[in-house]
Design a protein around this nucleic acid. Structure first.
Lengths: 138, 138
DNA sequence: AGGCTAAGTTAGACTGACTAACTATGACGA
DNA sequence: TCGTCATAGTTAGTCAGTCTAACTTAGCCT
């Protein structure tokens, strides 16, 4: 298979995976974007700019996201004592609990889907993950 | 690796792939959703209901999408002579040209990304695609 | 001090998605 | 054949997510 053929197949499957992700997110108490943001806060407070860059969105977009997470008390804004321009964002206890619960549900759903495959197919996916992780890391 | 571990890794990588897809779509003259709809029309006219089901969206969502594709003349609505309730949708010449052009750009982008990997990594992705394709086909 | 740069927020617009309510047509039994 | 119910689609209203442009505030540097 040429790289070009592979790119065509991958292009097709990426759309498929998007639909899968949509089903993973269905019925969750937060959207997949909110989940992703909470995940970025798991290891400690972050600044707005860092979050926006990591998620590949503009700052105003992240402002909106954090506003929506702050309103129900899942995250809290703080300040950086060394630079008054910087706003920090961190998980609240409730936000951490929500993150864990949603992650559990996501993983459970994916586990269920993976169980439907053969052991060989699961192994193939596992073997491809490192390569997929590198993909697009320009 | 247990299936549960695999699910966790996959959950992480899916988010990564979403960001990749976003970059693939950046700068294209149509959105990725519009591209996907045009792709569904490549093999011939379709009815609204069929398109909505294939894309996993509600009918009103597809109405809006088709409206936006019809306005610049990329698709055309028709009727089904055997059932007056049914609206058909088909590609115009311009729509087909647009589809081909966007596909070319997408594949070129992915090819470029894949070239940055080793042959082994590309092979691993290729080997996993059939399994990924099955994933979520409930 | 003055002026440039950086960090965030606000405002306005657009896409994409949903549900609810509506129109128009088809199907089927009394 | 007529009434009722189901099907196909559109319209209207709402919300999340994203963008750009414009603004505010704070730091930095000469």
């Amino acid at each position: 298979m040429t790289t070009d053929d592979l790119a065509q197949s991958l292009s097709r499957e990426l759309r498929h995976l998007v639909l899968l992700l949509r089903r993973v997110a269905a019925g969750q108490p937060i959207t997949s974007q909110q989940y992703a943001v909470l995940g970025s806060l798991e290891s400690g407070p972050r600044r707005m700019t860092g979050l926006a860059e990591e998620h590949g969105v503009q700052l105003p977009t992240m402002t909106v996201q954090i506003n929506r997470l702050e309103e129900p008390g899942l995250v809290a804004r703080g300040t950086d004592p060394s630079d008054a321009r910087v706003r920090t964002v961190e998980l609240t206890e409730e936000g951490r609990a929500r993150l864990v619960a949603v992650r559990r549900a996501r993983v459970a759903y994916l586990t269920e889907q993976l169980e439907a495959l053969t052991a060989e197919e699961r192994a193939a996916i596992g073997a491809a993950l490192p390569a997929l992780a590198k993909l697009g890391d320009v």
